[in-house]
Amino acid sequence: MTSTEPIVSVRNVSKYYDDNCVLERLSLDVESGSICTIVGASGCGKSTFLRMLLSQERPSRGSLLVDGKPIAAEPTPDRGIVFQRYSVFSHLTVEENLLLVREVETAPMAARLFGVARRQALEDIEETLEKIGLTGARKQFPSQLSGGMQQRLAIAQTLLKRPKILLLDEPFGALDPGIRSDMHELLKGIWQENLMTVFMVTHDISEAFKLGTRLLVFDKRRYDPHDSSAYGATVTYDLDLYKQQSTANLPAIESIVGGHRAVEKGKKP
């Protein structure tokens, strides 16, 4: 996809919780089809930024545009989300979790499919189950699955809705390194197939470099030693990973991501 119109525009966005400034005058345009990886120290507002893109929270100041229009006031199907936890429905089995997407789409009152329609829908999710390697676990509940399997299910469920924008909030944070790189492959493949725009918050810098087409580093420009909440974070590094594959900035970024953790303690992540 090569559109010149940015799919997401952030215009001078600030976010306060009471007097606590989390994000400060954040401005950026994101092109359709990019993978924006977002890193930063704990409490630097990267998850807050993601929640604003999800309409879970609103900016205190400034505006967010999706496709040139102000962002919807509540979560909508055009923006899919995978959280670190609780991304799938714990009371539904693997196949019921996937089936639910179709059921919600086609049965507004019952939210359930029966008979032929249900069998058809079950056949349709067969391929997805295969792809995420959960065919054998289809009758199991999420809590019976490993962390990696749960996140594969969560991603698959989200993608069934074909969102234009996929938001990932530390989706692999709780996974083992080996499983993590499997998930990276899965995500890359999905992205290439669907050509959507991805925003991914992560703590893992190498993951951010490996997966992203663009890397955003959230950090504070100004710092008040007496009141750490006086100034908010903004984007301090904005790297186009397509053009410059260099990792020249890596040490600086690493110090940002790791550095403020002690200072930032006790703040809302």
Partner: peptide, 22 residues
Amino acid sequence: PRETIIKAETLGANVWQMLLRL
């Protein structure tokens, strides 16, 4: 968990469907 409800919203569920299935 709030996440679960938001997930249902992003799957396009209306309030009635969320009551019934979630």
